[in-house]
């Protein structure tokens, strides 16, 4: 089955960079959003398998968007990708229900590892 991936980041370059890190030998359906609010709306509509989320964005921040998405779907798989590496920020998003936090600049193997782990967890959750 083709996986749906939603990328929420205000920087088009950052979205492009993230897409390029995803393994080329698999098929994905990509969706992009430029801020937290767009991200939440697209989430409702598309129900993506995995959501990559930046934190500092205009209109609605990643912090708020994560909370909104978790309200809609408690099993949402949100991988936070951020330049803010302070422990307090990491703790906040994990407490809100994000699956894991990756630090920018992102690397291919790091993204791949996170993706596999998230898919794994999601499938196990579905079986239960």
């Amino acid at each position: 089955m083709i996986k749906k991936i939603l990328i929420v980041d205000d920087s088009p370059i950052a979205r492009k960079m993230l897409k390029s890190c995803l393994p080329k030998d698999r098929e994905y359906e990509f969706h992009e959003a430029g801020n937290g609010l767009e991200g939440v709306n697209q989430y409702k509509e598309l129900e993506p398998d995995i959501t990559f989320m930046d934190l500092t964005m205009p209109v609605m921040t990643g912090y708020e968007a994560i909370e909104e998405i978790i309200k809609i779907d408690t099993k949402a798989m949100i991988i936070v990708v951020t330049a803010d590496v302070q422990m307090s920020a990491i703790k906040t998003v994990l407490d809100s229900g994000a699956f894991m936090v990756l630090r920018k600049p992102i690397k291919k193997d790091q993204i791949l590892g996170a993706l596999d782990k998230a898919m794994d967890t999601k499938e196990k959750g579905a079986q239960v």
Binding site: P12, I13, A14, M17, T82, A83, V85, K104
Partner: peptide, 20 residues
């Protein structure tokens, strides 16, 4: 404009790490 976007993104990363 692509270059500006890239620089912007790199600065976000750099300053995030600097703060830490």
């Amino acid at each position: 404009s692509d270059e500006v976007d890239t620089l912007q993104e790199i600065m976000n990363i750099a300053f995030g790490q600097s703060a830490s």
